[in-house]
């Protein structure tokens, strides 16, 4: 019991002293998650809208694949990216394994299907409402893709933040391809896993509390933003 108490006290002091290691880990976490999610949005938004609107060969396969990939276990994604990037793998020459870039790639594999699948659903619903009017105005389905992405912006922002939340809290994939190397690829989730198993509860707790806080801020922000925008745009 006392151990816990001490651990909490120490965790708070780490947070309030802005412990250098802690700050470094948080920074890297945010950087990797931001990059991974930004890249996923860049791919996932147009891909999802295209899958909703355009009729191209293999479209059905893309839709099924997106939905299947959405629920992929992160460890499996990590394993696949690991194999792709490992020295013997097809992209081994790039020497990316155990770098932050590898972690961003893994995040991207995880988040893109989520964003694309949710975007497809959102834009398909909106297309039901808009298609007669847009076609009457002379918009081709390809021209309608940016229109729908823009008009669904409130829902899509929530979708992206959902991806952000998932990427931020993810441990399995980034552990495998990043390796949890101190001062290089150690992020909040992998540090928590390591410190807990080592028995360094204060650092693990401090990180855990910050992770929780940031998740709350992100989700709260998403809620407030979405609510505001919905009220403005109805």
């Amino acid at each position: 019991m006392n151990d816990f108490h001490d651990a909490f006290i120490e965790a708070f002091s780490l947070i309030f002293d802005l412990d250098a290691d802690l700050v470094e880990i948080i920074n890297l976490s945010l950087k990797i998650t931001f990059s991974g999610v930004a890249l996923s949005a860049l791919i996932g938004l147009p891909l999802g809208a295209a899958a909703a609107l355009l009729r191209f060969p293999g479209r059905g396969t893309v839709v099924v694949l997106l939905n299947a990939l959405m629920g992929l276990p992160p460890v499996v994604v990590g394993l696949v990216v690991y194999l792709l990037l490992s020295r013997a793998g097809p992209f081994g020459v790039l020497g990316l394994l155990f770098t932050p870039t590898a972690m961003i790639i893994a995040q991207c594999f995880l988040i893109t299907p989520i964003i694309a699948a949710l975007t497809r659903q959102t834009t398909a619903d909106l297309w039901d409402e808009y298609s007669d009017q847009l076609r009457s105005l002379g918009a081709t389905p390809a021209r309608a893709v940016p229109t729908l992405l823009f008009d669904a912006r409130v829902t899509l922002l929530t979708t992206i933040l959902a991806g952000f939340g998932r990427a931020f809290g993810e441990v399995g994939a980034v552990m495998l391809v990043g390796g949890n190397i101190a001062h290089s690829t150690r992020v909040m989730t992998t540090a928590i896993a390591l410190e807990t198993s080592k028995g360094d509860l204060p650092l693990a707790l401090g990180l855990g509390m910050i992770l929780l806080l940031l998740s709350l801020v992100i989700n709260g922000g998403a809620y407030v933003l979405g609510d505001m925008a919905r009220r403005k745009l109805k």
């Binding site: 808009y130 009457s136 008009d151 745009l233």
Partner: peptide, 17 residues
């Protein structure tokens, strides 16, 4: 010919703008 036509629907479709 389509470019020279326009249509208004029973329930107006308003873009979210």
């Amino acid at each position: 010919a389509h470019e020279r036509q326009a249509m208004v629907f029973q329930r107006p479709v308003m873009l979210r703008r």
